[in-house]
């Protein structure tokens, strides 16, 4: 009952806010859609027409995974080759009102909408606009490069750690190779904004991101796609993707590991890096004692609760209710 009351309050508040701050009307579709709708069939001239002026760009585009996908004759004209993204050459060269879809000069919202003309088959506009990255005013081209020679340009953006060419300098020397279509290797790219997480990776105990064995997207769904939506979500499900030995279910479960309390694995571990061994939140037996307070020093004083041959299976056990055996 309480939830429905709250929902009613939120909806009322939303309606009030929506009415109070109407904003600008979006008009008929987005900018790219308008430019494409303007084009007639004869305005689409093909890649050779573009190469007359943009020879390097056209040659370089052949090295992009997009090139193979956009070269099919079966595709509609508005989704083929250079003009599939940038609009018809005839419109670009129109004497009266030349227009082109320029991803870097549009607003992030318009730029992303232009990409979703095709990519809506893998990620809906709704999924994208509700992602934290869209809400932070990022565009697809903030992180992705479509032309292999694209230079990172963080126009009108201050959320970068250094100069625009910072992305050419990996934050971690041994980081994993840059994936195709990304501006840089993942820690360097994500670290432009997520600075405190990068600082955590420098700590003594960390997930091996600096060593190139793990990348950010192994754990984080950077933007929700339909494929990733179909996976199980939740903190623990993410962790047991790699730490499969803790997937259980165990006969004797430890509540945090089973996801029954609070933040799951994060009740004991830090996700990125920690000063304590094995990414623990706390050092030694203090970890267990933060909940099991009565066991701090009077219960078998010694070292860590799990290292002294006692609670050797803290994640769960099939044989012992006190996790003394696996």
């Amino acid at each position: 009952m309480r939830i429905w009351s709250l929902l009613l309050c939120l909806c009322s508040a939303s309606l009030f806010i929506g009415a109070a701050f109407p904003g600008k009307a979006d008009g008929p579709g987005h900018e790219a859609e308008r430019i494409f709708q303007r084009a007639k069939a004869e305005d689409f001239k093909g890649d050779e027409y573009c190469a007359a002026c943009h020879e390097d760009k056209v040659a370089n585009f052949a090295g992009s995974p997009h090139a193979a996908c956009m070269s099919s004759d079966k595709l509609p004209l508005g989704k083929r080759g250079c003009e599939g993204c940038h609009g018809a050459g005839g419109v670009h060269q129109d004497e009266n009102n030349p227009e082109v879809v320029s991803f870097r000069s549009m607003t992030p919202k318009e730029s992303s909408a232009a990409c979703l003309r095709c990519h809506e088959s893998t990620m809906s506009a709704s999924h994208w606009k509700n992602s934290a990255h869209a809400k932070a005013d990022l565009a697809c081209v903030t992180c992705h490069k479509i032309h292999p020679d694209s230079e990172p340009q963080w126009a009108d953006s201050s959320f970068k750690r250094g100069k625009a060419d910072d992305l050419k300098k990996p934050l971690f020397t041994a980081a994993a190779a840059t994936k195709s279509l990304l501006m840089a290797d993942e820690p360097t790219l994500c670290g432009q904004c997520h600075t405190s997480e990068i600082a955590q990776f420098r700590m003594n105990s960390h997930h091996p991101v600096p060593e190139g064995q793990v990348v950010c997207s192994d754990c984080h769904t950077v933007h929700p796609s339909k494929e990733s939506k179909s996976r199980f979500n939740g903190v623990n499900d993410k962790c047991v993707t790699c730490h499969t030995e803790y997937a259980g279910p165990f006969v004797y479960q430890h509540d945090p590991v089973a996801g029954n309390s609070g933040d799951g694995c994060l009740e004991c571990h830090k996700a990125h890096g920690s000063a304590n061994p094995r990414l623990l939140n706390t050092f030694s037996r203090g970890l267990c004692a933060q909940c099991h307070t009565e066991k701090l020093s009077t219960h078998h004083p010694g070292q860590s609760c799990w290292n002294t041959g006692c609670h050797v299976a803290p994640h769960g056990s099939n044989t012992d209710p006190y996790f003394l055996k696996p």
Binding site: L10, C11, S14, G18, A19, F21, P22, G23, A25, N130
Partner: peptide, 9 residues
């Protein structure tokens, strides 16, 4: 709800 207002549930 509006061009600048969104409710997600």
């Amino acid at each position: 709800i509006g061009p600048d207002t969104n409710l997600r549930f």
